[in-house]
Every structure is written in C-alpha cells, then in structure tokens.
Design a protein around this nucleic acid. Structure first.
Lengths: 344, 344
DNA sequence: CTGAAAGCGCTTACAG
DNA sequence: CTGAAAGCGCTTACAG
C-alpha cells in the first residue's frame, strides 16, 4: 500500500533526461522534441507517476482547481449549478471541488479563507444568505471570486443571476391567460433578491393587467416545502380562496400540491399550481409542475467561465450577467374554474 | 485586491521571533512560552495572516483535508451523508471537500488520482456503481480509503453500510401486521448490494410468514422517481393488484404515490406505500411516507471517524461497520382494505 | 531543444 | 523554551 512515492526526479532518471524536461512535458509546454516527449510520457505511464499538486501549486502559484462554496447539498437547485460549473471546469482544464459551510457552527468563515488559501485559484460563491460581513471577509482575501444568485450586487465582484423578474412576469401572463384573477403568491426568504424580484413580477403583472392586489393572497414563505404546505392551507381557508397558487420556488409548490390534495381538491381542475426553478423533480411529478425554468446548469457553467477568464486576465462580459428564464408549462396549471373568475 | 502575500517569515519579523516559533504556535505545538504565543497570535490577528496550505502540505506531508467522492449532489441521500461526514471532520480538526465525477465523460478516474494526489489525506468513497476496475485503481493509489454503501466488500478496505436486510424485514413486519398479504415490491438498481439485500428481506419475510411469493408483484426499478411511477402503474394493472407497495427507496415511493393518486385511489385507505432511506423530504410529504430510516448522517460521520483513525494509526472498529436501520411509521401505510386480504 | 540553479512557504529533525 | 539548516516536489526565469 505504501510504496515509495515517485517524484519528477525519478521519472527524469528513468527516462534519462532532466527533471526540467519532464516538467515541461507534463505541463504541456512547447519546446520539447517529439521523441523525448514520447519517451517521458511512456515512463510516466509505465510507473504510474502522478505529480504532487501541492508542490506544483507552491512553485507555480496556481493549482488549476476551482472551488465552489455552497450552503449545503440538499437541494437539486445546488446540484444543478454544481453540475454545470463542474462540466465547464473540466472543459477549461480545471477541476472543481465543493465546500460547504453548513457543518460549521455559527457560519464561521475562517475555514474558508483557510482552506482556500493556496488550494484553489478562484471561488464560486453560491450563498444566498451570506451576510455583508462575510462577503466582506471573502472579498478581502486574495482570491478571485464570482458570485451566483446573491442578495445584492457587490462592487467589483462579478455575479451571475437569472432574470427572476421576467420569469415571474411570464408565469403571471400564463396564469392570467388561463382566466385566473385571484392568484395566491407564496414568497421565498425575504432577505433574498430572488424572492423580492419574483414578488415584484407578481405585483406588477397584476397592476399592468388592471387587477387589484389583494394582500391577503400574498403569503410569507421561506423556500422550503413544509412552508409551502402551511401557507397553502392558509390560502385555502380564505373566504374567497385563490384559483391558482404561484409559489416562489418549486419546493414550496410541492408542499402546495400536497395541501391542495389533502383538501380533496384536484390539480389543475379545481386549483392550479405553479413554481419557480424547474428542478429535475418538477418534471417527474404527476401532474408535472408548471414552473419557470432557471438555466441552473448554464448559470453554473457561466460562473466557471467568468472565473476562468478572470484568472487568465481575459475580459469578462461584464460585472453582472443575467440569464434568461423560460416558462415551462406542464399539467399543474389549467383554466380557472367557472363561476370563480368573476371579481368580487 | 492583490496586496503582497504574507508569509511565516513576515510574521516572525513583525513579532521579533523566528519563523520556527511562529510555525510552532500556529500548529498548536507545545514548547512555546505563553508570552510569545500571545504575541505571535496577536500579530497574526492584526495583519490577517493565513498560512499557505500547499506549503504546509508539502513540508508536513499531510493536509488535514479529507475528500469525499460522490456520484453527484442530486439526492438528499448524498447530502445527508456529506453533512454527517463534514461535521465529524470539523470535530476531528479536518476539513471536508467533495469531489464528484459526474461531470467527467466516460467515468474517467484519472482526475481523481490527480486531484487527490497530495491534496487530501484520505478519501471517503460513495459510489454505489463503482466498477471493480475503478475500485482497483483507487486502492492502488497511495491514499487511505473508506468505502460507503458499495456493491460488495473490498479486501483490506474498511467500509460502512446500513443494515438493509434487517430494515426490509422491519418494514415487511409492519405491512404484514396491517393485514397486507399482497405486497408489491419495486427493486433498486440490480447491481447494488443495497437493492439485493432489501429484496432478500422482502422475500424472506414472506417465506417466514408462510406466504407465497408472487413474482408478478416484484418489479424491476432503478432507484429513480419516474421508474417508481411506471412500475406502480404496472402493479395497479394486474388482475389482482397489491394492497401495499414497498419501494426499495423513497424516491421511487414518491413516484408510486403519484401513480396511485393518478388512478383516483387514496393513500393509505385504498393502498399503502412504503419506502426506504428516510430522506428529509419523506417527512415533508402529506401523507408522510412510512419508510425505513437509514442513519445517513451517522454513516457519514462514522466514515469520517474511521478514516481519521486510519490516518492516525489508531485501531479501527473493524473492516466493516453496519449501522442499524429503523422503522419510521408515518401516514402512507394503513390497514389492508377489507375483502382483499384473503388469499386467492 | 535541453539543463543547473534558485526558490515557492512551510515543517521536521537537530541543536542549544 | 527558542533558532539555523535542510528539504518537501515542483516551476520559473536564466543560460546554452
């Protein structure tokens, strides 16, 4: 199990060249004859040599590793982002590793500066609930950053987001076109930009269509499934319940569906349900969930590309990139039931 | 943004001691006077010095970082494992980083040996579908390993698993006690030990209760939600459909619930549904899913502890650790409907 | 196209 | 309790 570790020097001696030359071959530098290159690669292959990345990083001051800092791995939302980022990293000749701070008490950020110190060239930060203070700490360390889906823009730090406002408008147009006029809205965490933008889309759509905004139809949520259930129960208990429920994310829409069925109501015949995100599970439900597609994996890969460009000094598209959202109509939304479409 | 990076030497000069002493203080070694220790820590604090981990790793030949190799981040199953492993790592003075090979074409494993070479002290492998060949490659590299939930035991490599057989027996006892005699089973990926053990528990429970095994009630699955839906539709189309469905994991049970409701049947009045895993979402459903609790986060933390012990040379509990599974009865299972309990 | 030297920022023995 | 030296395994200029 513990055979002596091979070094560059070993490969050099075995091949009969200098360590320098081996290094050049392995890092794909030009200026090596095809013959020596082949010889070197052959012995590398034969003995199964793998370079020590710490030494490489220490000497070359870069690791070819990108980090991604996530709140946890518990949602498909995160996993889709990570997938996109990882694929783009490979294509750019980098590796992606994920760190989570969920298991750190008190959202301690020391470990992040510690662990990233020299271990990664750059960091993709996906922490919707990052405090200003923490963000400050992050931007102070000598590390290139790209921020995904944060609460607000951070000066000098490039960021990626989806067009949440437009997505909400698209969904509202869809619901309104189906004849719904009383549409319940369950918001997300109030301290996230995504939630506020989606709510803004909801409100402005109603206004633009000359419809009244009934504040009792707007319920506070938190992006979690149980809250979608609870808030839907509230909405269904209203004297004049909505004919459609628009949840600020898919997970809460799942809770809404359960609450609706728990009352013996049918989806979408009695009540329509819509979400936001389009995580994979939303397409696996029956009825499938009508939702707003966020290009999550594209957001991840865009973040990686931005970061790689930052590292190589290439121009980046801009300080902030907003990707398009799209409507995904499935079976959970349908025409508003007759007799309830009329305004009070 | 790019202030000159501070080194040990800088701290030493600023404090008026040698680099050696600073190193000793920072790595918590004894043999430093309380006064100097305090002085050193003060300047470290003041200037915001963070040690370079690559240099530390290169010189000290350990990184205090553990890696966890996962198929993807898409299921709560993985995230719970990672959470437990991460918490235990912090407690042991380590950091945990996650690698996924999902974004690598053709399940290429080169990157793993590459990336782990020097970057982590040990690796927790959570790849149920790892081929023998890949496993061979992993165990050949100079890296301490712990394997979680693999297809089979690997000689000389410690592993962690849940008691899948016993869990299935517990669930069957529950269903049988409710009067179910025709119980459908949807299996998982046939190349996983977990699936085979759960199926074995299903079969042997029936035998032990003197009940016939009807092979038409056993359907092939793959641990994914859509297949749970499809296979349940098959089961419901039988001339003599089951009164309960036991899916080999929760995700397929979710699909089963949708299929059952799609037929206008009620859960559990008309049909009971049971799963396996007890991922968080199972408790958030309505009705809540009756399932077998796998101590996922405990499995993760046990894996970390095993690995840390391996690294420190401490004895480990044994080559293989099997954690207990438990029955979690929620609302998705109920008494078998009258008139269908009788055997044909 | 190839190589000898210096150095990346730490830690590990070895002295005192 | 404290320090000067050597070295971890690479890469980066600098020569030839």
């Amino acid at each position: 199990m513990s055979k002596p570790t091979l070094t560059l020097e070993d490969i050099a001696q075995l091949t009969g060249v200098s360590a320098m030359t081996v290094s050049r071959v392995l890092s794909g530098k030009s200026g090596v004859s095809e013959a020596t290159r082949r010889k070197v690669l052959e012995t590398v292959q034969n003995v199964g040599y793998v370079p020590n990345l710490n030494a490489r990083a220490l000497a070359g001051s870069r690791t070819r590793v990108l980090g991604m800092l996530v709140p946890d791995f518990s949602t498909q939302y995160i996993s889709e982002l990570a997938r996109g980022a990882g694929e783009a990293a490979i294509q750019a000749g980098y590796e992606l590793v994920c760190y989570t701070n969920s298991h750190h008490p008190q959202a301690n950020f020391t470990h992040v500066t510690l662990i990233t110190r020299g271990l990664v060239d750059g960091l993709i930060v996906v922490l919707p609930d990052l405090s200003d203070q923490q963000l400050d700490a992050l931007s102070r360390i000598n590390l290139k950053l790209v921020i995904v889906d944060h609460r607000h823009e951070v000066p000098d730090v490039p960021s990626i987001d989806a067009d949440n406002y437009r997505g909400a408008r698209l969904m509202m147009d869809h619901l309104l076109s189906l004849g719904h006029t009383r549409i319940g809205f369950i918001s997300g965490r109030p301290d996230t930009r995504a939630s506020l933008e989606r709510l803004r889309g909801y409100r402005e759509s109603l206004q633009l269509h000359g419809l009244p905004i009934d504040e009792t139809l707007i319920r506070p949520g938190n992006f979690l499934q149980p809250e979608g259930f609870t808030q839907t129960q509230h909405l269904l208990s209203l004297l004049q319940p909505p004919t459609a429920i628009f949840a600020a994310n898919d997970l809460m829409a799942f809770g809404a569906m359960d609450a609706i069925r728990g009352r013996g109501l049918r989806i979408p015949e009695d009540l329509s349900v819509a979400g936001f995100d389009d995580i994979p599970m939303s397409a696996h439900l029956h009825p499938g969930l009508t939702t707003v597609h966020q290009p999550l994996s594209e957001m991840g890969s865009a973040a990686t590309r931005m970061l790689v460009n930052l590292l190589s000094g290439t121009d980046i598209p801009g300080p902030r990139l907003e990707l398009r959202t799209e409507l995904r109509v499935r079976q959970s939304t349908g025409k508003a039931p007759r007799g309830q479409q009329t305004t009070p």
